Computed example of a mutant assay.
Amino acid sequence: MTHLPYIVAAYALALLLGGWLSIAATLRLSRARRRLEAIEAASGRRARRQTS
């Protein structure tokens, strides 16, 4: 009996999990950047209002 199918399955699961985590991190990063841009834009508007 060969253990090759189990080894292949373990590597496939590791690759899928790594891919899943990478995609999730990329999506979180892009959402965080958009939120930061919105916060910076809002604070920039407030700063301009206070100086006027």
Rank of each mutant, 00 (worst) to 15 (best):
I23N: 00
R31C: 00
L21T: 10
L29S: 10
L4M: 05
R28T: 04
L17S: 11
R34G: 01
L36I: 13
R48F: 08
T2W: 07
T26Q: 09
L4D: 08
L36C: 04
I39H: 15
R33K: 15
L21N: 01
A38G: 07
A14C: 08
L29F: 09
W20A: 08
L21H: 07
M1S: 10
G19M: 02
A32H: 01
I7E: 11
T2H: 06
A32W: 02
Q50A: 15
A38F: 00
T51Q: 07
A12L: 11
A47W: 09
L21G: 05
Y11D: 04
L4V: 12
A12H: 08
G18Q: 10
T51C: 02
R48V: 11
Y11V: 13
W20L: 06
I23C: 02
L21D: 01
T26L: 11
R31S: 09
A10V: 11
A10Q: 09
Q50M: 12
E40W: 07
A42R: 14
R48W: 10
L16C: 13
A24K: 11
L17F: 00
A41P: 00
Q50E: 13
Y11M: 14
A10P: 01
A42M: 11
L15H: 09
R48L: 14
R33H: 05
A25N: 15
R45F: 03
R31F: 02
R28Q: 12
L21Y: 02
G18N: 08
I39L: 15
G18E: 01
L29Y: 03
L29V: 00
A32G: 05
I23K: 03
A38P: 01
R31T: 01
R33Y: 06
I7H: 00
W20M: 08
I39Y: 13
R49V: 10
R31I: 06
L21P: 05
A38T: 09
E37R: 15
R45A: 14
L4N: 08
P5W: 04
I7F: 06
Y6I: 04
M1D: 09
G18T: 07
I7T: 02
R34P: 05
W20Q: 02
A42G: 05
R34H: 00
Y11Q: 08
L4P: 03
A14Q: 06
L4A: 10
S22L: 14
A10G: 07
R49F: 12
A47C: 07
L4H: 06
E37L: 13
H3K: 12
E37D: 12
